[in-house]
């Protein structure tokens, strides 16, 4: 079949209900692919920026975690400084947390910052709730650590008062009030230090020394390639249908090779 369909024949095929339907499907797919591609691209950027943040100098926690807001993905693992007074009455224990294979709990204490807002500080690990160092004196301290995102699991769990199964500022806000900032700080060092004190734990989400997010980067490219594919398939198949239509109506076609 060497007949070349005229532009009029291609257009006439394109506006048939069948081909308008395909055009609609193609547009929906292209939109989805572009949105997914952008999402993967943003993930790539977040991971690269989070790594830069993890290696940057500590910033005041007030700049990183804003009350009522959410923690920006590119700031996970950012080293922070937090100065204020512990409020031992609000302290919660995170159940079932092991350190180097030993079972225990994590101690999370609200820290009242100078502006009156609160940030959750993961002070560290203890073998059990009654271990020495569990109670935080309401002293003024300067905490250095890294900011961590809310833990998003076991949200439906209802443990005993004073205990939680995951660190979620949404849940802590119900206990501590609306001035609670999102996320939490994993304590690395504290001035002045308490003795005894819980053992500081490594951050759950480590963004330092992260590998280049090649998977997200390639997926971002591939979604755009898939969108381009939809256009190619639509065009090629439309062309063929128009060609077959032209074959039936010879005035719609120009013959390329002598027949």
């Amino acid at each position: 079949m060497s007949n070349r369909p005229t532009p009029r024949a291609v257009l006439r095929t394109a506006v048939t209900p069948r081909w308008l339907g395909f055009a609609g499907l193609a547009l929906i797919f292209i939109t989805c692919a572009v949105v997914l591609g952008r999402w993967q691209w943003e993930r790539t950027q977040d991971i690269i920026q989070a790594e830069q943040a993890a290696q940057s100098a500590p910033r005041p926690v007030e700049e990183v975690s804003e009350p009522g807001g959410t923690l920006a993905n590119e700031l996970l693992g950012q080293p922070v400084l937090a100065e204020g007074n512990y409020e031992g009455a609000g302290q919660v224990l995170v159940l079932h947390r092991s350190l180097n294979g030993k079972p225990g709990v994590w101690v999370v204490t609200p820290l009242r910052l100078t502006d009156g807002s609160l940030i959750a500080v993961l002070r560290g690990w203890l073998p059990d709730a009654g271990a020495p160092g569990a109670i935080a004196p309401n002293d003024r301290v300067a905490v250095a650590g890294v900011v961590q995102p809310d833990e998003g699991f076991y949200l439906e769990a209802k443990p005993a008062p004073g205990t939680v199964v995951a660190i979620s500022s949404v849940e802590l806000r119900k206990l501590w009030g609306p001035e609670t900032r999102p996320g939490y700080v994993t304590l690395a060092t504290q001035q002045p230090a308490f003795t005894p004190a819980p053992t500081p734990v490594p951050p759950t989400v480590v963004t330092d020394n992260a590998a280049f997010p090649i998977q997200n980067f390639f997926y971002a490219i591939q979604w755009l390639i898939f969108a381009a594919f939809a256009i190619v398939v639509y065009g090629r198949w439309l062309w063929r249908d128009a060609q077959e239509m032209s074959a039936k109506n010879p005035e719609d076609s120009t013959t390329v090779t002598p027949s």
Binding site: Q215, F218, Y219, Q222, I225, F226, V232, V233, R236, R240
Partner: peptide, 24 residues
């Protein structure tokens, strides 16, 4: 494991090309 997922993304891309070619 990560490498194979990345590889699969590109293998599927080749699958698309040869698939469209054959279908046409």
């Amino acid at each position: 494991y990560r490498l194979l997922w990345t590889a699969h993304g590109w293998l599927y891309f080749i699958y698309l090309i040869v698939g469209v070619d054959l279908a046409f």
